[in-house]
């Protein structure tokens, strides 16, 4: 049914934005991590979203699309290198490589993600109000 499909789409949006928030939280929490299981400093992660047809066959025709996290990619660019010979993770020249997490960028994406989340909640509310209104027909 149409109304539930709308809610399904909004739910996919909420889910995707929440996953995005998780990754942002992870980035911020690890903004000073110099040791990782793979070795080296922590790499900033990014969520890549992709749209997906509501149901597979109908997707061949025109359909509204849900959203899903397609991949979480690691960004290996722009590590900060600082001279700190006393640090246990300093290399033989006394340079320490810090993660490429920029708190400002993360805060901006955090705000964007939470705005997008709010927008999806608003759609969900609107759809619910519409469905409830439709129930009043013939009362």
């Amino acid at each position: 049914m149409n109304i539930f499909q709308t809610m399904d789409i909004s739910a996919s949006g909420l889910h995707a934005q929440r996953q995005r928030l998780n990754v942002i939280a992870e980035n911020l929490a690890n903004s000073h991590t110099t040791r990782t299981p793979e070795g080296g400093p922590y790499c900033r992660k990014e969520v890549i979203l992709a749209s997906r047809p509501v149901d597979e066959f109908a997707g061949l025709l025109e359909q509204s699309s849900k959203v899903a996290v397609q991949a979480v990619s690691q960004n290996r660019e722009g590590f900060r290198v600082e001279y700190d010979p006393g640090h246990p993770d300093a290399d033989d020249k006394g340079m320490v490589t810090w993660p490429n997490v920029n708190p400002i960028t993360e805060m901006v994406s955090l705000t964007m993600a939470s705005r997008a989340f709010d927008a999806n909640v608003a759609v969900l509310r609107a759809s619910k109000a519409m469905a409830l209104k439709a129930l009043e027909i013939g009362r």
């Binding site: 995707a16 995005r20 979203l49 509204s64 997008a116 999806n120």
Partner: peptide
């Protein structure tokens, strides 16, 4: 009109869910 309005709602929901999808074009 009720049918098409709820269909439109579905399309708008899709657009909003895909706000941050790269290369998504609104319907």
């Amino acid at each position: 009109s009720l049918f098409w309005q709820s269909r439109r709602q579905e399309i708008l929901a899709g657009n909003l869910a895909n706000l941050d999808t790269p290369r998504y074009r609104r319907k």
